[in-house]
Simulated assay, not measured.
Amino acid sequence: MTQAPRITYPQSLNGLSTREEIADTVIRAALGLDSNNKALWESSWAADPDITFSVGSTVMKGLESINNDCFNRVGPMDTQHLITGIRIDVKDGLNTAHLTANALAQHYRAGQGQDPNAEFRLGGGTYDIQVVKESDGQWKIKTWVINTIWSQGTRAVFQPA
């Protein structure tokens, strides 16, 4: 079977409203994970060394920790993160905003996403994200909390086979 050509995604888009720019932070992050595109993933995170990413009781602080404990594990997997119901609270003139969303995330070991008998992990929940507008004009994630409400499958897919 032939591998499809890798698609490159821009780190910023033109002509977006403020709300669309804010929503794009989480969309960029998810697309970065799903395409194993570290540059796109990192473009969604603020430069602040105190950024945090929380999944359940696991709290990662700083981009190096977030990359080691999340991107480097999930990025190579066959995944799809679907985000909907995005709500944004932003006040004119401020460089901070709050975003909430519903999400579904499907995970398979690398190369196994097309196998109907492969082990998987599917989870549904909410995202609670604080974003900041940085000096480059882009909105970026400062804190991201994932609240998993339900899941199916096995956590074992996150471990090497």
Rank of each mutant, 00 (worst) to 15 (best):
C70M: 15
V74P: 00
H107V: 02
Y127F: 06
R109V: 02
G15N: 11
T79V: 01
A97W: 06
N67W: 04
S17K: 07
N14Y: 01
S54Y: 07
Q152W: 11
L63W: 04
V145A: 02
N68C: 09
P76V: 03
K142S: 09
P5Q: 14
H81L: 06
S43R: 08
G32W: 02
W41L: 08
I129P: 01
I27F: 12
D34Q: 03
K91T: 13
T58L: 14
G32H: 01
S151V: 01
T79G: 03
S151H: 11
S57K: 08
N37W: 04
A156Q: 14
A105T: 06
T148L: 07
Q152F: 09
G32P: 05
V132R: 14
Q80N: 07
V132L: 15
T84M: 10
V145T: 13
T100V: 13
T2G: 15
V26C: 09
W150L: 12
W45I: 02
P160A: 00
E64I: 09
Q80Y: 00
P10A: 10
D92H: 11
S135W: 06
N36H: 13
R121D: 08
D48A: 04
G62T: 04
D128G: 06
P160R: 01
T58K: 14
D69L: 06
T18K: 10
F120V: 00
G75L: 00
S135C: 08
T8G: 13
K142H: 14
A110R: 02
L82V: 10
V55Q: 10
S54K: 14
T148G: 11
K61N: 03
T143G: 05
A47S: 15
S57C: 09
A103K: 03
S65C: 08
H107I: 04
A97T: 12
H98Q: 15
C70R: 06
Q159T: 12
N67V: 07
A103R: 02
D115G: 04
R155H: 11
G75A: 05
T79E: 01
S57M: 12
T154Y: 08
T2V: 15
P76R: 01
N37R: 06
R19G: 10
